[in-house]
């Protein structure tokens, strides 16, 4: 059976689909968060070198991975919107940006909390930290640009161009920061290369999946609001049950 995917590229049909999909992602996300945190806090053993504080990585690592990944997804959606002129792709890009910025921020914040007991400093100009900070700046630039443009069509397209330029720049920034760091001074503290305990792996993986599902759920919720906001003058919105009440 061939599914007509294009049917759901129209905001009016996707609105209903997104509404049905949200619980399917939100509940597993909540469940997996609980499971992941339980394994992380109670099952996973205390680290020999880092003590209890290492448990921050169970939220830190998924947040870092997703903050970078969301930027790519966002740029891909933005590019789709720019090339094929699909409204929904641009809305998805807009919906993903705040979540990406949130994860970048969580990653920096938990990184600082982890760095204080481990490195003895809240902030180190390490290549990874610095590039994560720049990534947060890129997200904020994208959000600020879209927020300051009234015309949604122009906002979508301008944001898309910025996201694409940013994603081309991300590897350049990453490597320049890395070289900058190694040229200044060798990184004095490195991750210990010991193999991870199986329970730690499970906790990390569960948390990663949970965060992932959360991202999907929250961006679907957000894209529903964006659809409603932009299509508020159309007939199909006026006929929605939740609007009529």
């Amino acid at each position: 059976m061939a599914i007509n995917w294009f049917k759901y590229s129209a905001p009016s049909t996707f609105y209903g689909l997104a509404g049905k999909l949200v619980p399917w992602f939100a509940w597993p996300a909540a469940l997996l968060f609980c499971v992941g945190l339980y394994i992380g806090f109670f099952v996973a053993p205390t680290d020999v070198v880092q003590g209890e504080a290492y448990r921050i990585i169970f939220i830190h690592v998924p947040a870092s991975i997703l903050s970078m990944f969301i930027y790519l997804i966002m740029a891909a959606y933005a590019a789709l919107g720019l090339i094929f002129n699909t409204r929904l792709s641009a809305m998805m890009a807009t919906a993903l940006a705040p979540t990406g910025a949130l994860f970048a921020f969580i990653s920096l914040w938990t990184g600082a909390l982890w760095g204080k007991p481990m490195w003895g400093a809240w902030w180190v100009w390490d290549a990874r930290l610095t590039s994560e900070l720049i990534l947060l700046f890129l997200y904020l630039g994208f959000i600020a640009l879209q927020a300051s443009i009234e015309d949604t069509r122009r906002a979508d397209r301008a944001g898309a161009l910025l996201a694409i330029v940013g994603s081309v720049n991300v590897p350049i920034i990453y490597f320049s920061v890395k070289w900058w760091n190694t040229l200044h001074q060798g990184s004095t503290i490195k991750f210990t290369g010991t193999s991870m305990h199986i329970a730690m792996q499970q906790a990390m993986f569960t948390m990663l999946v949970a965060c992932w599902l959360y991202v999907i759920a929250i961006s679907l919720v957000r894209v529903r609001s964006i659809i409603l906001e932009r299509e508020r003058n159309t007939q199909w919105v006026k006929e929605l049950a939740e609007i009529k009440q």
């Binding site: 630039g141 940013g166 720049n169 320049s176």
Partner: peptide, 17 residues
Amino acid sequence: VLVSLLVLPLCIPVLIF
């Protein structure tokens, strides 16, 4: 202000090198 917000992060490699 907006243009600085957009452009400054992209200029970091130039600054570094």
